[in-house]
Computed example of a mutant assay.
Amino acid sequence: MAAKVEFENDDGQVVHYVRHVNGGGLVSPSARVHEGASVAPTAYVEAGARVGDRSRIGEGSWLDHDVLVGEDVLVDRNVHLGPRTRVHNGARIGAGARIGSDVVVGSGARLPADAIVPDGTVVRRGARSGRSDFGIAA
């Protein structure tokens, strides 16, 4: 597996990634992912993002620009975390979730699979079941 990878984006710009040592996921050179974190081979971590120790980023997931992921966080497969989103320690985000921009996911919060969280939402620890916790009809 190549240590450095280049792609041309939709705007014709060449973007660079390096493979994370734990899992082989694609990480922007300007992102910071703790060596104790795991990034699946088909996951992306964009510029300015940070991922803490013991966090796991699943297959096909995408951490957009300037996302902050704390320690002991699980981001399941095929999740998108929008720009500037913050996920605090111990949070769990279910498969297929779509998290908007500038969202705050509190410590220990649980988001179910396929959750859709609008821009600017604050998700507290008690948000464990149903979309109604995010202001969307269950």
Score class of each variant (00 low, 15 high):
3 A>V: 02
4 K>A: 08
4 K>R: 14
5 V>A: 00
6 E>G: 04
7 F>M: 09
7 F>P: 00
7 F>W: 14
8 E>K: 12
9 N>A: 10
11 D>W: 08
12 G>F: 00
12 G>K: 02
12 G>D: 01
14 V>D: 00
16 H>C: 00
16 H>M: 03
16 H>E: 08
17 Y>D: 00
19 R>P: 01
19 R>E: 05
21 V>P: 02
21 V>D: 12
22 N>Q: 07
22 N>I: 01
23 G>H: 04
24 G>M: 06
25 G>A: 04
26 L>V: 09
27 V>L: 06
27 V>N: 03
27 V>S: 05
28 S>W: 13
29 P>S: 05
30 S>A: 12
31 A>P: 00
31 A>R: 08
34 H>R: 02
34 H>N: 10
35 E>I: 10
36 G>D: 08
36 G>K: 05
37 A>L: 02
37 A>Y: 01
37 A>C: 05
40 A>V: 04
41 P>V: 03
42 T>L: 05
42 T>F: 05
43 A>M: 08
44 Y>A: 03
45 V>M: 08
45 V>H: 10
48 G>K: 10
48 G>L: 12
50 R>Y: 05
52 G>Q: 02
52 G>C: 08
53 D>C: 04
53 D>F: 08
55 S>D: 11
56 R>Q: 12
58 G>Y: 00
60 G>A: 14
62 W>I: 15
62 W>K: 11
65 H>F: 11
66 D>R: 14
68 L>P: 00
69 V>K: 04
69 V>P: 09
69 V>C: 03
69 V>Q: 13
71 E>N: 07
71 E>A: 13
71 E>K: 14
72 D>N: 13
73 V>W: 08
73 V>L: 10
74 L>I: 15
75 V>Q: 10
75 V>N: 09
75 V>K: 02
75 V>E: 05
77 R>M: 07
78 N>I: 10
79 V>N: 00
80 H>P: 03
82 G>D: 07
89 N>I: 09
90 G>L: 04
90 G>A: 05
91 A>T: 10
91 A>F: 13
92 R>F: 15
92 R>L: 15
93 I>F: 10
95 A>Q: 11
95 A>L: 14
95 A>I: 06
95 A>M: 09
97 A>K: 15
98 R>T: 04
98 R>P: 03
98 R>F: 10
98 R>W: 12
100 G>E: 11
100 G>K: 09
100 G>Q: 05
101 S>Y: 09
103 V>Q: 11
104 V>D: 12
105 V>K: 13
105 V>D: 10
105 V>R: 09
107 S>I: 13
109 A>W: 04
111 L>I: 12
113 A>K: 13
114 D>R: 15
115 A>W: 08
115 A>M: 04
117 V>F: 04
118 P>A: 13
119 D>V: 06
121 T>I: 03
122 V>F: 07
123 V>W: 06
125 R>D: 11
126 G>M: 09
127 A>W: 13
129 S>L: 14
129 S>E: 10
130 G>T: 03
131 R>V: 07
131 R>Q: 13
133 D>I: 03
133 D>S: 15
136 I>C: 11
136 I>H: 12
136 I>Y: 07
137 A>C: 00
137 A>G: 13
